[in-house]
């Protein structure tokens, strides 16, 4: 437990220290979202309505892409620098250490990105009253994305420029949270709040992904150490 906390604290310190941090993925997320109205035909009479129709899918696609981006370096740096080998010498199980890394990533990058989803939602014509609910759903969705992407990130840790590979390996696992996350946001935008089955399913998927992801990722990392 001490080992898990130590790793959690270190990863938070690295994320918030110089270098990494949430700025790049959030910039990527907002930049992607901001391109959508710019690329739509402004002459069309129904522009705002069209924006409103694509708004939630765009937010979820951008969040999923940002998740691929942050997962790429999660284990790669530790593998290259020799930190992963040290983790194998810890009394804590590797699964628990991977979970600590995943939670640190979620808190350091996933939650700030989810906060940025609220202004993004307003930009995309989603009712302002529902924007905080979109943020909450994206926060849960980011946990699901990170959990679901762990195994891909672990399997690709030894490969340079593995982003595309992680996307390929993890895409099937990203579908359920994206599906139910978008459905939950749609219901929230219609004024139904977050008490909907879609949001409950999203939460269930997030817990499942955060629980199973580290187990699969730890197995993949043990192979990488050889």
């Amino acid at each position: 437990m001490i080992a898990v906390l130590a790793l959690f604290r270190r990863d938070l310190a690295i994320a918030w220290g110089a270098g990494a941090g949430p700025a790049a993925p959030i910039g990527f997320f907002l930049g992607t979202v901001a391109l959508v109205p710019l690329t739509m035909d402004a002459q069309r009479a129904s522009l705002l309505e069209s924006l409103r129709n694509v708004g939630i899918p765009v937010i979820w696609i951008a969040a999923a892409l940002a998740a691929f981006m942050i997962l790429e370096r999660l284990f790669q740096a530790d593998l290259e620098e020799g930190g992963l080998e040290q983790m194998l010498l810890s009394p804590a199980p590797l699964e628990a250490l991977v979970l600590a890394k995943a939670l640190a990533l979620w808190i350091a990058v996933g939650l700030p990105l989810a906060a940025a989803a609220a202004p993004a939602a307003i930009m995309l014509q989603i009712p302002a009253a529902s924007a905080p609910l979109v943020s909450i759903a994206v926060a849960v969705g980011m946990l699901a994305f990170i959990g679901a992407g762990l195994v891909g990130a672990a399997a690709a840790a030894g490969i340079k420029r593995a982003g595309v590979l992680i996307a390929l390996v993890s895409a099937p696992f990203f579908a359920p949270p994206a599906l139910f996350g978008a459905a939950a946001c749609e219901a929230a935008a219609q004024g139904l709040g977050l008490g909907t089955p879609a949001f409950q399913l999203l939460c269930g998927i997030a817990v499942l992904a955060a629980a199973l992801g580290p187990i699969a990722a730890a197995a993949a990392l043990r192979l990488q150490a050889e």
Binding site: I2, R10, A13, I14, E85
Partner: peptide, 27 residues
Amino acid sequence: HVLGHRDGVKSGISLIAHVRYWAGLFG
């Protein structure tokens, strides 16, 4: 303890943070 070619050092955090982390990691 294994001291390999790669030191397991992270550029972004302080030296003392490294040692505290290792102490925790190794119980």
